[in-house]
């Protein structure tokens, strides 16, 4: 009886599915976004290797310089605290000086809104007071906060690098990019509101590295990977220790397992 009911239910489900499967499908409209969209190519970062890869401190500092002099005009970085900049090689005094350049909203002694100089314990602030102000200043497009951009896009740092160098002067003939938007093959909709941000020699690197667009894009991508995953090196270091420990433990566990079962296995072949 159970089986008959089951078979009947099964037959109904199968019929509903097969009826759906034999329906004709709508003609596929060729999707131009799919045609022109390109996945980010690997840019080759020092932290690419998931086990031993490390950040390049000098690159992170260059990337910070690019963020500060270019990106921070529109993009916030408000999950990152100034104090954490010591992790990428800045001294405590340098961090203090960097923080001081920012005005942080505050209240004065009378309770009136005012601003004060930033402290190392503050997070990055600005450039806009809120999302509405950001939209108002950017033609109604919202520049995303960059703190997590290294993890919130497929491809991570490679994506950031590819996007920054992925602008094309003229879109293909069958694609229209409206005024005020820019054609970029690495952006999900191909039309991005951000104008090409980098020009050759836009920043002057303290360490004398030549500031090509590709170099700046790579440096800032590395920096933004660090802001997204500041504990990356600590994580991998801990992981190497943990995995080595566990392999040794598992080896010992195997030896004790083999030892315990020795008598049973021997008996099996002799009985």
């Amino acid at each position: 009886m159970v089986k008959l009911i089951a078979a009947a239910i099964g037959a109904i489900f199968c019929a509903a599915l097969l009826w759906g499967a034999v329906q004709p499908r709508d003609a596929v409209v060729p999707d131009l976004v799919k045609k022109y969209y390109q996945h980010a190519e690997p840019a080759g970062f020092s932290f690419d290797n998931p086990i031993v890869g490390k950040f390049d401190r000098a690159q992170l500092q260059r990337g910070f310089q690019v963020y500060k002099e270019v990106c921070s005009g529109c993009h916030s970085l408000n999950r990152v605290a100034f104090r954490t900049l010591t992790d990428i090689g800045f001294s405590a005094a340098e961090v203090k000086a960097i923080a001081k350049q920012y005005d942080i909203p505050s209240l004065d002694a009378a309770g009136e809104p005012t601003t004060r100089k930033g402290l190392p314990s503050d997070n990055f602030y600005g450039p806009y007071a809120n999302d509405d102000a950001a939209r108002a200043a950017n033609n109604n497009a919202l520049p995303p906060d960059l703190s997590l951009i290294g993890k919130s896009r497929e491809g991570g740092a490679n994506y950031v690098h590819a996007l920054l160098i992925g602008y094309k002067e003229t879109p293909p003939k069958d694609w229209t990019t409206p005024d005020g938007l820019y054609f970029n093959v690495h952006f999900h909709s191909l039309n991005i509101a951000m104008p090409p941000p980098l020009n050759p020699d836009q920043v002057t690197y303290v360490d004398g590295t030549k500031a090509t667009v590709d170099q700046m894009a790579k440096d800032v991508a590395a920096f933004l990977m660090w802001t997204a995953e500041p504990k990356l090196e600590e994580r991998r270091r801990t992981g190497v220790g943990a995995v080595i420990f566990l392999i040794i433990l598992t080896g010992l566990a195997y030896l004790s397992y083999a030892r315990v079962w020795q008598s049973v296995k021997a008996k099996k072949t002799q009985v």
Partner: peptide, 23 residues
């Protein structure tokens, strides 16, 4: 017998788990 075998299996499992968590 099976405490030993489970402990070995647990070691393999935790090793793979740790590799994914950390890497």
């Amino acid at each position: 017998y099976y405490t030993a075998k489970d402990f070995f299996g647990l070691g393999v499992y935790l090793t793979i788990f740790a590799a994914v968590v950390f890497f």
